[in-house]
Design a binder for these strands. Structure first.
Lengths: 227, 227
DNA sequence: AAGTACATCTCGGGC
DNA sequence: GCCCGAGGTGTACTT
């Protein structure tokens, strides 16, 4: 890992072309040849970058200034014209053990699979990740009357989630095996549901369910204490 | 901008929880309080980060080691336990003039607006960015028979683009002024169209058009040479 | 401030 | 390898 602080001008050409006027920035040169250009603000996204695998060659521009050229295998190029280097240091980092993540949509799905009745009284689980031709339905359930219920789970309930569930319902309702006890209903479950998504869902006869993540975890813990 | 290379362990808690075991990494501390944790590989995305606005406080853990706590207004926290600092430097960067981008979907739209007949024979442009209640239609055209044609342009044709065009078509077909010469048709134009998007589009009577960007630019250049 | 669409998205999983 | 969905998405633009 090489860290450079320099006054530089940058031109990228690839899927698009982009230009950064001369200014002082941080250049992060990683061991795999990739390059990140950061300013002193914004979020984690660099102003400009080159993804690995790529190759950096140091050269000289026509006017004698230092010029770095980063090229990828797909003919993307990043040209860094350097006017002044304020800092330049290299560091041995070693291989990173990597990130351990926990608890996202998957966990919400597990909790709801264990407690389907919190979505609607009498609801029971048929199976998680119920396969269809256009992808798996998060939870396939049955209600008290024996009718099939497809549940789509999202952390945040937005319009595209409703569209997704609608596509599943269209498909599922063509299957005579699923509709023997009436049409397949849909439940859109999320920790929070945006107003527009709610309107669209209700317009399509889909039930909205706001899920309380902490309460669900509480149910789990309560059961754990019983055993 | 402060650059730190340190052996550290990191715990994030927010919308999810994540853990990074003790290892040597680069910590980038920006002027707005945001923090990025990078390893010596991967793409531009940091292993972990905190987005602005946020606040960094330096403290001491129970065992006496240095501990940084970064907190956001939404109660996300990033805890950085530092074992050894290999490098620590600060730099004045100033405000960045910002990135100038050129040529993406916009350029494709301009080219197709100039050459609508490449999408379907006899197609003529009515207007770009045709306004509707739910947003602008990329291109509104008329075919040889005088019927309206709505064109949605994407660099990559995926399902959500078909959904978007479908919503437009539903709305446009309620307008008697547009349907005097028959129902409004849809053309889904993209440099590449994913199989699932193609199936969905055709199922809804939407025509798919694969656009050759280079050939379109060629048409433009040929015309330029004439004048 | 909220909603929408785009991104040189990145990243992981499935086939 | 491609395809597809999720993201602590970020980002720009509109309402």
């Amino acid at each position: 890992m090489r860290l450079v602080v320099a006054r530089c001008q940058i031109d990228y050409a690839g899927r698009l072309t982009a230009h950064l006027p001369m200014a002082t920035r941080v250049l992060m040169l990683k061991a795999d040849g990739s390059v990140l250009v950061h300013s002193d603000g914004g979020s984690y996204k660099p102003l400009n970058w080159m993804s690995p695998p790529c190759n950096l060659t140091e050269g000289t521009a026509e006017d004698g200034r230092v010029e770095w050229k980063v090229t990828s295998r797909t003919d993307d190029t990043l040209r860094i014209l350097i006017e002044e280097i304020h800092h330049d240091s290299s560091h041995e980092l070693g291989i990173d053990p990597g990130l351990q993540k926990d608890g996202v949509e998957r966990h919400l799905q597990e909790l709801l699979a264990e407690h389907p009745a919190t979505l609607a009284p009498g609801l029971t689980l048929v199976r998680r990740e119920f396969p269809t031709a256009i992808g798996p339905v998060d939870l396939m359930c049955r209600d008290a009357g024996g009718a099939s219920v497809a549940v789509e789970i999202k952390r945040r309930g937005e319009i595209d989630g409703v569209e997704q569930l609608t596509r599943y319902l269209e498909l599922l309702n063509r299957d005579p095996l699923l509709t023997t006890n009436g049409a397949v209903r849909g439940i859109f479950a999320a920790q929070a549901i945006k107003p527009q998504a709610r309107v669209l869902a209700e317009d399509r006869g889909i039930t909205c369910a706001v899920v309380d993540y902490d309460a669900l975890r509480g149910l789990d813990n309560a059961e754990d204490r019983l055993f």
